[in-house]
């Protein structure tokens, strides 16, 4: 049922798991939202009132999700807004601590994205270096790939922009550079969070090709998307989350059929 364009680890032999989620629960704590009143006296009374946690609201984003992902799989994550898809990815990457349950992984899964490490006041050049180091590349690796990153982003097609501060870039240019930096690293387990829809048509084509390349190099790929077509094109298995609970887990065609039935209601 799964499209046969994906390599299935060692064929015949037992499949090798790369990510195992075991009854995973994730709870966010948000400060200063309880009570609705933002005045100082309200805040003070919240502090004085002991008992349940003061002024903190809990958001139970992922509720008891279990699955096993294997080498060579490309897994799509679908579900309506706020269903916990991104949170689940972050937990798999080890970036959000689990409230209870566990995630076991082979090596270090990484999210595709370096936005937070880059600084708008620095030149594109320095941001390439900084972003690469933040992702854990060595200086030599970055120097080796520097030209490739710049060429891929296409930043210099309209003049020497890479030596200008990033705040002078158009939003499209900045997004392209961010994607190029993020995609420069090889990953064991790669997670992509709706990152594909940046830049113009030409750049989108180029980035989709790069994602396919990354998929070949990576052991396992997770893709979060609201675009059923891109899920169908790239994934052979789909996990459907709703309200933080795993609703369905199976071959792409089956799950998407159910999901489309659910969303068209």
């Amino acid at each position: 049922m799964a499209e046969a364009d994906v390599d299935q680890g060692a064929p015949g032999g037992p499949r090798t798991p790369t990510v195992i989620a075991d009854d995973l629960h994730i709870v966010y704590r948000v400060n200063g939202t309880k009570g609705g009143k933002g005045s100082a006296t309200a805040a003070l009374s919240r502090i004085l009132k002991r008992g349940e946690e003061r002024g903190v609201r809990k958001v139970h984003a992922v509720r008891g999700v279990s699955f096993t992902a294997y080498r060579g799989e490309a897994i799509g994550l679908i579900g309506s807004n706020g269903s916990g898809k991104s949170t689940l990815l972050k937990a798999v990457a080890g970036l959000l601590p689990a409230e209870s349950g566990k995630v076991y992984t082979d090596g270090q899964p990484s999210l595709l994205g370096v936005n937070a490490a880059l600084m708008n006041d620095l030149t594109g050049e320095r941001n390439v270096m900084l972003g690469g180091l933040a992702m854990g590349m060595t200086r030599e690796q970055i120097r080796e790939r520097y030209q490739g990153i710049v060429d891929f982003s296409g930043i210099n097609e309209k003049g020497d922009f890479i030596t200008l501060p990033m705040r002078t870039y158009s939003s499209g240019m900045a997004a392209r550079l961010r994607f190029s930096i993020a995609a420069a690293k090889d990953h064991d387990v790669l997670m992509i969070d709706e990152a594909l829809a940046t830049g113009d048509k030409k750049f989108q084509k180029r980035s989709e090709a790069r994602i396919r390349e990354l998929r070949k190099e990576a052991g396992t790929v997770f893709l979060v998307s609201h675009n059923n077509k891109s899920i169908r094109d790239t994934c052979d298995r789909v996990i459907w989350l709703e309200h933080g609970e795993l609703r369905l887990d199976g071959p792409t065609a089956e799950v998407l059929k159910e999901y489309e039935k659910f969303t068209s209601k």
């Binding site: 075991d22 970036l95 566990k102």
Partner: peptide, 16 residues
């Protein structure tokens, strides 16, 4: 069990 499976293939707890 998930824990046994993880042990068999040498997976480690993410974010530990």
């Amino acid at each position: 069990s998930p824990a046994q499976l993880a042990e068999k293939y040498g997976l480690s707890v993410s974010g530990a």
